[in-house]
Design a binder for these strands. Structure first.
Length: 572
RNA sequence: GCACCCAUAGCUCAGCUGGAUAGAGUGUCGCCCUCCGAAGGCGAAGGUCGUAGGUUCGAAUCCUACUGGGUGCGCCA
């Protein structure tokens, strides 16, 4: 039930009618005809740009079309008035009964706002994909929250979504991890150890070293690397993934699948993917030009195996093999995306940190090539999170012990607040995260503001329930009441726009707006008792009032659900 | 040097497929609890939408150039 979509189809009907009546010429494309909320509510409840969009192709004046359209729309039962304004806008004022009906619909329709836009299309959202070498830090947190909310949003919009984590367990960094754990293992055996450059000195590996000792005893003592490296690598990686799973769980994120990079090695998967590209004549041996400007000190021309990504819009072709013959990071990633394509996804989404921006074009090129441009890949880059404490920049340093992990943040401010704050910014805009402000329970803090609105709704509803009052058809008269319903009417639109643009932050902003109009109405009850939801000693009036807060709570709860934030029953 | 992202109120940011007088929060100033939850509300003030062109009936939005900031640029992942 989307009032705007409904009205749009009324408008299109009217336009078709105008064509058959000879008012408009044949063969017009209505694709750009939109029905939207007007910028200013004083203009009306809805506005359509139909006349302006069609003026040129119909070779008519916008106002002429608008007037003819207004005449027809004015006849509809749900339209109270249709007036032409400005350059050719058609403003519609709806019959007041529409609003009451909508409120009724919201509380009786399961999941009002859920959309079938996705048509069950399969979408894979890959996110977090942090190296399994340590705990997740704040930077990962944003990607985790964003990816999870995006996945929920798409699912709400009718897509079949898989949440996936790509474990980078194939490169040199897991060897470093293994060596670091080995040192902790020696330490667990009472040896003095030092952590040389190129190892991870973090305390979080102490327990892993002890666990390794527990498992293998003294088997690896005084042994060469070749003897223990592979085993320790696996043991350590598994321990890290265990930790990361726990970190994600603390945030409320559950992956559907963890995909191991290492599983691509030695199984022919990488070779297979590259053969696929080679079959399209996109792999060749060649030498890259050095990058212009600053030349790397040790630059020397080398022949490498290259992927012809320029055939799909990249700036230069990209190496898939290092000079020593080992794969670059890109090669298994090609194989990974090939795997995703083969699993039948209609759409791929990668959520990456902004520092991977340079990687986007080649990955898109690879996916386009491998899927014959059938499967779109959207790469969402999350900008950095800048930490503050009471307005003061909070510098992170592993050495100074001020390294901030995801756990630190969640323990300090809670998962709900963390998630909401991370989503109050567009993904490609940098985010300031202030610890002190995040836990402050005030209007400074949008989370509490939205939750407060929900709590107020629930509070009234509990009171009504306790009094045995059940909701009856609402009577909506005041402008503040209509404002709230107007906001509710936009919910399905917001879901679709947010899903289409892959921008979950729109949900957060919408909820804030909805909460705002609700709080405004609530406070109006201070001066005008007849606007209160609870009408003391008048069960009949109360019954007619409480459907609106019920509808608000339905939408807030659905919206917060998408963001993964708890819609609380009461503030404490 | 090249590529990608960003530039909107003092500050932090929204702004839908190009649409009407560009919106919130915060900060500043004034007001509102005998009142359903003041963790709230109302009002005032605050803008050459980085600059210059272009496309269009119409541009914060699209195109080009420039300025300023971020990120990245073979053998890190």
């Amino acid at each position: 039930m989307n009032l705007f979509a409904q009205m749009r189809s009324r408008v299109l009907d009217a336009l078709s009618q105008m064509i058959s009546d000879g008012v408009l010429p044949d063969g017009l494309d209505f694709a750009n005809v939109a029905v939207e909320p007007p910028r200013d509510a004083a203009h009306g409840d809805m506005a359509t740009n139909a006349a302006m969009v069609l003026a040129k192709p119909a070779k008519m004046k916008p106002r002429d079309i608008a007037e003819a359209l207004a005449e027809r729309l004015g006849l509809l039962a749900e339209v109270e008035s249709a007036t032409v304004a400005g350059p050719g806008f058609l403003n519609l004022r709806l019959d007041p009964s529409i609003w009451a009906d909508l409120v009724q619909t919201i509380v009786t329709t399961p999941e009002y706002g859920r959309s079938d836009m996705g048509q069950g299309g399969k979408v894979n959202v890959e996110f977090v994909s942090a190296n399994p070498t340590g705990p997740m830090h704040v930077g990962h947190t944003r990607g985790a929250v964003f990816g999870d909310a995006l996945a929920s949003l798409l699912s709400y919009a009718g897509y079949e979504v898989t949440r996936e984590y790509y474990i980078n367990d194939g490169g040199a960094q897991v060897d470093v991890l293994a060596r670091s754990v080995y040192l902790r293992y020696l330490q667990a055996h009472g040896q003095e150890v030092e952590f040389p450059e190129g190892t991870y000195p973090g305390d979080y590996l102490i327990g892993v070293g002890e666990a390794l000792k527990e498992k293998v005893g003294d088997t690896y003592l005084d042994k060469g690397e070749q003897f223990w490296l592979a085993d320790v690598r696996e043991f350590a990686t598994e321990a890290m993934m265990e930790m990361i799973r726990g970190d994600l769980a603390a945030l409320g994120v559950t992956m559907d699948r963890f995909f191991s990079e290492k599983s691509l090695y030695g199984t022919g998967r990488i070779e297979g993917a590259l053969a696929e590209l080679d079959g399209k004549d996109l792999i060749y041996r060649g030498t890259l030009e050095p990058p212009k400007g600053k030349l790397p000190e040790d630059w020397e021309p080398r022949e490498q195996t290259l992927f012809r990504s320029t055939a799909y819009g990249d700036d230069v072709d990209r190496p898939v093999q290092k000079s020593d013959g080992a794969w670059t990071y890109f090669a298994p990633d090609i194989a990974y995306h090939w795997d995703k394509i083969e699993r039948g996804y209609d759409q791929l989404i990668d959520v990456l940190g902004a520092d991977h921006g340079g990687y986007v074009k080649r990955m898109k090129a690879a996916v386009a090539a491998l899927s014959d441009e059938r499967v779109p890949l959207d790469v969402k880059l999350c900008q950095l999170v800048k930490l503050y404490k009471n307005g003061e920049p909070f510098k992170m340093s592993k050495r100074a012990g001020t390294f901030v992990t995801l756990r630190d943040v969640v323990e300090e401010v809670g998962a709900d607040v963390t998630r909401f704050v991370m989503l109050t910014r567009k993904n490609d805009a940098p985010l300031d995260f202030d610890f002190a402000k995040a836990i402050e329970q005030s209007k400074d803090n949008p989370v509490y503001y939205v939750q407060y609105a929900h709590a107020r709704c629930r509070s009234v509803l509990r009171k009504a329930e306790a009094a045995g009052i059940t909701a009856a058809s609402p009577v909506l008269t005041d402008a503040a009441e209509i404002d709230v319903v107007r906001a509710l009417a936009e919910w399905p639109r917001v879901v679709e726009i947010a899903a289409r643009t892959h921008e979950p932050h729109r949900i957060a902003f919408y909820l804030y707006d909805l909460a705002q109009s609700f709080h405004a109405l609530w406070n109006r009850g201070n001066d005008r008792p007849e606007l209160r939801f609870w009408q003391e000693g008048d069960a009949g009036s109360t019954a007619a009032k409480i459907l609106l807060p019920q509808a608000v709570s339905v939408v807030i709860s659905a919206g917060l659900g998408i963001l993964g934030v708890t819609p609380v029953e009461e503030m404490r």
